[in-house]
């Protein structure tokens, strides 16, 4: 693969993370018990979808094969999505959703910050725009984790269980594969070892403030970055793609 092909695949992966997390959050639309949180969730979900569109559009241009953002989102099979396992995990209860968001947002914010300094100007610009959105998402999710962890006995117990349950999907974020290394070498991309160190520090701070405990060392699940997903993912893809696949080219 040429450096440009590496970059294209890398940007597609960024788009996959944003799209899949956005799709998960969109499942919660009209399900929130409070109007203001309902709006916040829908806003954030659409921020992620918007980021996916920017990544996919750029990847399509780099690839030069005429594929559009819709082709990437709606007409690829499950195993061609290279998103992290963490972002495809079901919403569960509110604590599960919030823990998933915090674990991802801290990682993603670090990644985007690093990408603003990469040598590919367009990618750096997309990252700079996304970074502002994600900084606010993290403010929101982290505050909620603190409220839940440092809330009632029940919310504390549930939040700790959510953290314990999702922890095994965090290792994959920092396991650099050939693509991560190629983009680091050719384009000054993110160094995942640095991002892991910052993530550990920031997550510890939030978890401490939430009076929760960092889970014990555990077996880390992986495979998402190679297109091997958890059992939940097929349903998400099927629902997300059902309309464009049933009515190709539909507009309204």
């Amino acid at each position: 693969m040429t450096p440009e092909q590496h970059l294209t695949a890398y940007i597609l992966r960024l788009g996959d993370n944003a799209l899949v997390l956005g799709q998960r959050m969109l499942e919660l639309v009209a399900a929130y018990p409070e109007l203001e949180e309902e709006l916040a969730n829908a806003n954030f979900a659409l921020d992620y979808i918007g980021q996916a569109r920017m990544f996919y559009s750029y990847a399509g241009e780099l690839e030069g094969a005429g594929r559009s953002e819709d082709d990437f989102a709606y007409f690829r099979p499950e195993h061609e999505f290279k998103n992290l396992l963490l972002v495809e995990q079901p919403n569960g209860h509110f604590g599960d959703t919030i823990v998933r968001q915090v674990l991802f947002d801290v990682y993603y914010l670090g990644l985007l910050e690093a990408l603003t300094r990469c040598s590919d100007q367009r990618l750096a610009e997309i990252a700079a725009r996304a970074e502002k959105e994600v900084r606010y998402h993290l403010r929101h999710s982290a505050q909620w984790l603190v409220r839940l962890g440092d809330g009632t006995e029940e919310s504390h117990r549930k939040a700790q269980r959510s953290l314990d349950g999702l922890w095994r999907f965090t290792g994959e974020m920092f396991a650099a594969d050939a693509l991560d290394e190629a983009v680091l070498a050719s384009f000054g991309g993110p160094n995942l070892a640095d991002i892991a160190a910052d993530w550990q520090k920031d997550i510890s701070t939030i978890v401490d403030e939430a009076t929760l405990s960092i889970p014990q060392e555990t077996h880390m699940a992986s495979g998402g970055k190679q297109g091997m997903h958890t059992e939940h993912f097929g349903y998400l893809v099927a629902e997300m793609q059902s309309l464009p696949r049933t009515y190709p080219g539909a507009t309204w």
Binding site: L35, E36, E37, L39, A40, N43, Y136, R139, H140, Q143
Partner: peptide, 11 residues
């Protein structure tokens, strides 16, 4: 108060 500010921003 903090949540109110966020909700105002989001709404």
């Amino acid at each position: 108060d903090q949540m109110a500010l966020d909700h105002a921003r989001d709404t």
